[in-house]
Structure formats: structure tokens, C-alpha cells
Nucleic acid binder design. Structure first.
Length: 827
DNA sequence: AGCACGCCGACT
DNA sequence: GTCGGCGTGCTC
């Protein structure tokens, strides 16, 4: 241990104690004592092996101190697992900030932050007790099965026992076996990360001598296959330089036995070498473009803004070439030897952008997102920790990597909701956490967006962030012309929406004729968003989530888009017994079908959550579209994120009413952002971009703003709305805790929420708070109704009673809690 | 997380 | 009467 970490007077070999974060939901961090022999090794940020309730865990040392805790007797730290700290003080500070700000434990942050292969937890192993009297008769069936297996193997892992006993009740059986002295248990920590080895084949150096090699070949007797293999090897070596065993066998069609023959004869050697899983590219910076005058100017402004402010918002219209600006900025930081974190929403991390950046930064850049497997993550982690990697391109979880001298964080598409982690704790907003994180390094943050979030824009208005605008499209392409197509007067069946207006149909035909491509956007997957009973108007809902079920034609199922459960198609109305259902509205699946019927010569493909099973499907679909083997791409939000297609000049928004009527409390912002993003896909390389918006409510104010790309006006409108009806732009997190089950408490909870919020409103609002509070009450009521049933299902529908009703702003992990997040203002 | 302990309904 | 599910408390 580094003595300087201790207060001066306490170098003495007194007791040493460590506060250690373990990846569990514990009310606070626990303390372990550090035995003498680990005094040297222990340091803040290293992993420690500790035992808690007789299970072993890997934790991170957070603090080292000498005062003995009075309240309990600490157990000893069992081991220190690292030679060098895995984390630095900045990461630990970040964890602490997140746990405090977003109301969770540091253990939960650790769970999200550290790759699973670095968090070992113990494995229970049963060991055969040689001294057992082998009285098999005393065992019941289950005990006998386990004992039998153990008798043969002498050692069983918990997972194996669970396999024998079908999982659920392995523990009681094991317990009885221990009591009966059949076995005893052992807890073992396993390092899960494994280095990757590759076997290389090398020629015995003796034969580097041309003559000797010739002699060998000329005097070859028997084993003609081996000779063939050797020749194949020599050829490969000449062309590739290095030859791996795998490659050699594949290319020569030889068998491992033949290779072994050559190795046994000492002609070839095989040796194993530890390999990098990540492809290594040359560490060059090759930037082969020049910025336009407008980009140049914006870059200058950003750099200047960073001399005064920590955060800068770059508001650039779609296709203004924000990425190129980032690239230039990143270049500057790399040249200063600083690290850069470039964050993108997960969905935008496509092969397209990755390829582009790798072209510029080669081996300096590393990608990090959830699709990487655990071993790869460890390698990325180490490369950042050692400072070898300068640039990380990653999704929100990349924030937790152990940067050492971070200089810049770029958050592209900063308004994207996927920066918020919703489901498992920590529920954090990565964009805001990044602002805090950067401040720990004195690093700068660049937020980029064509449609900034209201929060960030507001921070600019307040003077907290700097604002730089980029209003010109790259290559001087004009923004696409936006045209509304009124669907009110297009004849269709009553209650049904028109999918393809004649105007849009004509425009598609026209675009395809000109060899251009088309993107059609519909914010609904599936075939029909809901079925409705013809007789009584009953609509099938999900049992768990209480949301309407979407009909999927391909699967012939009703699917809940909230929890994913599917139900058989209903033929009988649960309310009135009628057998007639109408399909209301349309989703991507139906559009695809309609198009195929209306325009049989046009090649149509669909891109949504259903048509893309693996990451691979996504990439290959994009490739097909890029290669122009598809004319029309129908899709959900997926088609808008981070893709740059050169030949699209028509974009259709099929049901703008659906977007404008979002049952969402931020209607205008979301609707504007979505339409702006979608329409930005048109005409990125030429001046002929065209956007058709099919809409019945043509007077909606947001449509006008979309046509004008008038973000400023939208912002004003939105802020005014929030002040009047909703909530202050930046409410703090609110958490309600219930000490028992949740069910008929939604109303109650919403009331409580309203009470708590009323107080916070006084700061922001001058007028009467009542309308605001009512609106919020309803909003939270909705949230709770939607979200609680899932929670309640987990906790198994118990009694309808709140034992404790408190709204706490501080965390109290003792209790089960429901948390509702509002957007949070970064400190 | 996981495991022990205590409380109430089903039942060999 | 007990067996066992479920809910609650506790772990350095």
C-alpha cells in the first residue's frame, strides 16, 4: 500500500480497515479488516476478495483507514486481486455521485460499471466426504441422486446439482447432505477472464538455410501428405508472414494428425501465444477531408467556448457534418495526449459510423457497447486503463471505463432518450453524468444534436452551457422541402386511416423511376396497433401492463409492446361475446404489405425490432439498402438513427397524427424531434430532397415549426407549456417508498407525489400551482398504473396496504421503492 | 443478491 | 397438528 494514503500519524502497524464496494444491493458499504500480509498489496481501486455471509465476492476498495469500527467485528479481507488499481479516484467519485444523485447503492453502480468477468463471485462446490459411512438407505430420492453423482465425481459444482434436481430447491437438499455428513462445501472464486491463445506454426530455424531445406525436400521419403502440408506451409509463410495452426489446416485441407507428424519430426514447431481479441490497427491519424467554411467557423467557436465554459451544445441542422467537426476536435485532443469519449445512442452505433472513425483514427479508437462479450470488455477496459487507447466510441455504459486523462466527452444525439437507463438500477442519465464526470478531469463536454433536448437548450439560455450553431448543410445542400398531405378528405372506411395517399404513391413511383431511394416512417411496428370489438368497442389489453395489444400478422399473435408477452388472436370479445373485430390503425408490417400490393415492381424492405433479430440482420439490411438493392425502406425509429444514405431523396411520414397525439407529457418536443430527424434523411447529397407528411390535423402548430425547422420557436413554446401545465424543466428525482406490496395504491401514490411536488413548484412558478399539480398527479398516476403491475407481479400480488407512506428525496434502500424520474439538472 | 426466520393457509 | 409459501430482515 502507498503510505501516503494514510494519515501521517498512523503508519504504525495498527489494525487496518477497508471500506469495500461489493456488487450487491446493500444499505451501505461494509468494512473489512486488512490482515497484516495484505497491508502492502491493498490500495484504493483494487479488487479485493471478501466473504459476506460465507459467500465470497469481489469488491472494490473504496477507502482505507485505521479506526476500528465500534459497532461490529469486521471480517478479514481474503485477498487482493490486482497488482494495479482497476479504477482511479475519478471513477470512484463518479460512482458515489451517481449513487447519491440517482438514489441507488454504489454496489449497483459497480454492477453496471465493471465488466462481469472482473466481478467474480463465489461458486459453491460440494466435496465428497471420504469419512461418510455410505449409508445410502438413509437418503431420500433427491439426496440419493446427488450423492450418487458425488460419489463418482468426488466434486460437484452448484450448477451441476441444480441440473440434477431441476434447479429450484437445490439448497435444502445440499443442506441436508451436509448435515448427514455426505459432503462438505467449499466456496471458490474463479477468475473468469481468459486470455485468448492462438497456436502459431513456425519452421524449425535450421531450415531457414535454403540448402538444408532443399535437402530435406529432395530426400523426402513416405508421408506424401505431410510433404504437401509442408509445402502449403512454406507458401503461406511467404505470403502471410505468420501462420496460425487454424489457418494452415483450413487452407491446406490437411488433418491435425499430418501436422502432428511434421511437428514430431521437428520440422515444424507449434507454439501458443496470447492474443488480442480486438483487431489491432495502425496508430495513425489520417484525416482526408477539409472542413467547409461554416464547419471551420463552428469549430473555432466551440474551441473558444471551451475556454469559458465546460459544456458546449452544438446545434447543427441534419447533414451539417457534425461528425466531421467532432473528428477534427478529437484529433486535437489526441495530439495533446488526452483521451476522448465519444458517446452515441446504442442504436446509432452502426458499422457505418464505426468504419468511418476507424478510417480516421485507426488503432487509437476502440468501440465499446453492450454487444461485446465479457472477455472483450475486459480487454477494452485494460486498454483504457493503461492509456493505450485514446478514443472510445461507445454507448452510455462506456462512461464507466477507467479513463486516466480524459480531455473531452462528445455526446452525439444528446436528446436521445436511450442515454437514460430505465430498468435496472442505477437509473441514470448518461449525458448528465458525463457532465459531472468530465468536471472531475477538468475535461470539456460537447453535446451535439440537430434537435437538442429542451433541458440542454435551457442550460444554454441560462448561460450554463455555451451554444454553437451550424445552420448550413454540408455541400451546401438545401434542406428538403416539406409538404403536408391532408388525409382528411381522402376517402377511406370510417375510423380507418389511410396508409398510402395518391400523392405519396405518385412520389414513390417517381423517385424509384429516377433511381432514387425512399424511406417511409411509421412509429408503430406490427400490423395493427389494436383490435376493437365491432359491437361494444372493447379493446384487448395486456394482462400485465394494461396497454393495448398490437396485432402481428406474420406471427399471427397479439403482442404487448411493453412487456413483449404474446397472446393468441382473439375471435371472441371478452366483454360482449361478439365475434367481429375491426383492426384500427396500421403498423410497419401492414405498410409493407400495402406497398407490395400497390407497387408490385418496387423492392420494399422493412426495418423494425421484429425484422431484425440479431445485430447482424441490421447491418446486412443497411448494406442492402446502401447497395441500392432495396428501393423503399419502411421502418420505425430505427431508420432515423445514425444512418447516412446518399441516395434517399424522398421521405414519407405516414401517420403524423399518431406522432402529434403521443400520450406523452412532452408532446411537442418529441413530435418535433422525430419529424425533424426523419425528414433530415432526405436529400443529404443533393438539393432534391422531399418530405411528405400525411396528416389529418394539418393545423397543428408543431407542423408549421417542422416545415420551417424552427427550433427556437419550438423551444419557447415548450418552455411556456411546461411552465403552464407541466413541471419545472428540471425537477429533482422523486422516489416513493412503500414498505409492503403495491397494488391499489396508485391513486394514493399519485396524490402523495403531487403533494411533494407542490413544494418544489413554488420555486419555479408564480401563478397558482393547482392545474400543474393536477396534471402531474395524472401523469404519475399513469406512470404508476403502467409500471406497477409488472413490479407487483414480481412481488406476487399481496395485500393492498401501504404500511409506510413517505416521499423521500434521500435514498432509503431498506424499503422497496418505486422511482419516477424526471429530467435532472446536472450540478 | 441470497439466506434465515417468522407468519398464515392447505392437508399427508 | 405440521408443511411450505411468502414477506421481512440482515449481512461488515
Amino acid at each position: 500500500m502507498n503510505v501516503s494514503q494514510l494519515p501521517n500519524s498512523l503508519y504504525k502497524e495498527d489494525g487496518l480497515y477497508a471500506e469495500i464496494i461489493i456488487p450487491l444491493y446493500l444499505p451501505k458499504n461494509y468494512t473489512w479488516s486488512v490482515p497484516q500480509h495484505l497491508h502492502e498489496a491493498i490500495a484504493v481501486g483494487k479488487r479485493a476478495e471478501v466473504s459476506l455471509r460465507n459467500k465470497k465476492y469481489t469488491g472494490i476498495v473504496k477507502k482505507i483507514f485505521t479506526e476500528k469500527p465500534a459497532a461490529f467485528e469486521p471480517k478479514p479481507v481474503l485477498n487482493i486481486l490486482d497488482n494495479e488499481p482497476l479504477l482511479h479516484k475519478e471513477q470512484l467519485q463518479l460512482w458515489h455521485w451517481i449513487s447519491d444523485y440517482y438514489l441507488c447503492t454504489e454496489g449497483e453502480v459497480m454492477q453496471a460499471a465493471v465488466p462481469s468477468n472482473l466481478k467474480l463471485s463465489s461458486e459453491t462446490i460440494l466435496l465428497w466426504n471420504e469419512e461418510w459411512d455410505e449409508d445410502f438407505g438413509s437418503l431420500n430420492d433427491e439426496e440419493f441422486l446427488v450423492t450418487e453423482a458425488l460419489h463418482i465425481k468426488k466434486e460437484l459444482r452448484l450448477a451441476e446439482v441444480q441440473q440434477i434436481l431441476d434447479a429450484t430447491h437445490a439448497y435444502p437438499v445440499i443442506k441436508r447432505l451436509i448435515e448427514k455428513n455426505v459432503c462438505y462445501v467449499w466456496e471458490e472464486l474463479k477468475e473468469k477472464y481468459k486470455e485468448k491463445y492462438e497456436t502459431f506454426i513456425v519452421l524449425n530455424p535450421v531450415y531457414h538455410d535454403e540448402e538444408k531445406l532443399q535437402y530435406l525436400l529432395n530426400n523426402w521419403s513416405r508421408a506424401p501428405k505431410q510433404m504437401e502440408l509442408l509445402l502449403a506451409y512454406l507458401h503461406l509463410m511467404k505470403t502471410e508472414g505468420e501462420v496460425t495452426q487454424q489457418e494452415l489446416l483450413k487452407k491446406s485441407n490437411a488433418s491435425p494428425a499430418q501436422l502432428k507428424g511434421l511437428i514430431d519430426k521437428n520440422i515444424l514447431f507449434a507454439h501458443k501465444r496470447s492474443m488480442d481479441r480486438l483487431p489491432s490497427l495502425p496508430k495513425d491519424v489520417v484525416i482526408d477531408f477539409t472542413l467547409s467554411a461554416a464547419q471551420q467557423q463552428a469549430l473555432k467557436e466551440v474551441i473558444h467556448a471551451f475556454t469559458e465554459k465546460q459544456v458546449c451544445l452544438l446545434h447543427g441542422v441534419t447533414s451539417s457534418g457534425k461528425t466531421q467537426l467532432y473528428v477534427r476536435l478529437i484529433e486535437q485532443y489526441i495530439r495533446q495526449g488526452k483521451q476522448v469519449l465519444y458517446m452515441l445512442p446504442e442504436i446509432a452505433l452502426t458499422a457505418q459510423i464505426i468504419r468511418r472513425l476507424q478510417k480516421y483514427f485507426g488503432g487509437h479508437i476502440t468501440i465499446y457497447h453492450s454487444k461485446f462479450n465479457a472477455n472483450e470488455r475486459v480487454e477494452i477496459w485494460n486498454k483504457i486503463n493503461s492509456g493505450e487507447t485514446k478514443v472510445i466510441l461507445g454507448a452510455r455504459s462506456a462512461l464507466f471505463l477507467p479513463f486516466r486523462n480524459l480531455g473531452l466527452i462528445i455526446i452525439d444525439e444528446e436528446q436521445d432518450p436511450s442515454y437514460k437507463q430505465q430498468d435496472p438500477a442505477p437509473r441514470y442519465q448518461a449525458r448528465d453524468a458525463a457532465v459531472y464526470y468530465a468536471s472531475l478531469f477538468g475535461a470539456k463536454v460537447l453535446l451535439g444534436s440537430a434537435t437538442p433536448s429542451i433541458e440542454s437548450y435551457h442550460n444554454c439560455e441560462l448561460g450554463k452551457y455555451a451554444l454553437v450553431k451550424l445552420t448550413e448543410r454540408f455541400n451546401n445542400a438545401a434542406l428538403p422541402a416539406i409538404e403536408l398531405v391532408d388525409t382528411k378528405h381522402v376517402i377511406s372506411k370510417p375510423g380507418e386511416k389511410i396508409i398510402l395517399t395518391p400523392q405519396l404513391k405518385y412520389a414513390i413511383e417517381n423517385a424509384v423511376k429516377k433511381n432514387k431511394q425512399v424511406i417511409l416512417f411509421q412509429n408503430r411496428r406490427g400490423y395493427s396497433p389494436y383490435l376493437i370489438c365491432n359491437a361494444c368497442g372493447w379493446i384487448p389489453h395486456c394482462r400485465n401492463c394494461d396497454v393495448t395489444l398490437t396485432y402481428h400478422k406474420a406471427k399471427n399473435k397479439l403482442v404487448c409492446h411493453y412487456c413483449g408477452t404474446d397472446y393468441p388472436v382473439m375471435y371472441t370479445c371478452a366483454a360482449c361475446g361478439s365475434h367481429q373485430f375491426n383492426q384500427r390503425n396500421f403498423g410497419t408490417e401492414k405498410i409493407e404489405e400495402t406497398l407490395a400490393a400497390a407497387l408490385p415492381d418496387v423492392r420494399v424492405a422493412r426495418m423494425d425490432y421484429d425484422s431484425i433479430k440479431g445485430k447482424h440482420d441490421h447491418d446486412s439490411l443497411i448494406k442492402l439498402f446502401e447497395q441500392r438493392r432495396i428501393d423503399v425502406l419502411v421502418g420505425t425509429q430505427m431508420v432515423v438513427k445514425g444512418l447516412d444514405f446518399e441516395h434517399v431523396n424522398l421521405v414519407g411520414i405516414l401517420d403524423a397524427d399518431g406522432i402529434l397525439n403521443f400520450a406523452d407529457f412532452r408532446v411537442n418536443e418529441r413530435a418535433f424531434q422525430l419529424m425533424e430527424q426523419v425528414s433530415g434523411r432526405a436529400g443529404r447529397r443533393d438539393a432534391e430532397g422531399e418530405v411528405l407528411i400525411q396528416v389529418a390535423n394539418t393545423n397543428h402548430p408543431v407542423l408549421q415549426l417542422v416545415k420551417e425547422h424552427n427550433y427556437e420557436e419550438l423551444y419557447k413554446m415548450e418552455i411556456a407549456n411546461r411552465r403552464q401545465f407541466f413541471y419545472p424543466p428540471f425537477a429533482r428525482l422523486i422516489q416513493i417508498t412503500f414498505k409492503h406490496k403495491l397494488s391499489n395504491i396508485a391513486e394514493e401514490a399519485a396524490n402523495l407525489m403531487a403533494v411533494a411536488l407542490r413544494a418544489s413548484f413554488d420555486q419555479y412558478l408564480s401563478g397558482p400551482a393547482e392545474p400543474v399539480v393536477n396534471r402531474i398527479r395524472n401523469m404519475f398516476l399513469w406512470e404508476i398504473l403502467i409500471k406497477l403491475p409488472r413490479e407487483a407481479a414480481v412481488i406476487n400480488n399481496c395485500k393492498q396496504q401501504i404500511v409506510q407512506q413517505t416521499i423521500i428525496i434521500q435514498s432509503n434502500p431498506q424499503y422497496r421503492s418505486v422511482m419516477i424520474t424526471a429530467d435532472v439538472d446536472p450540478v
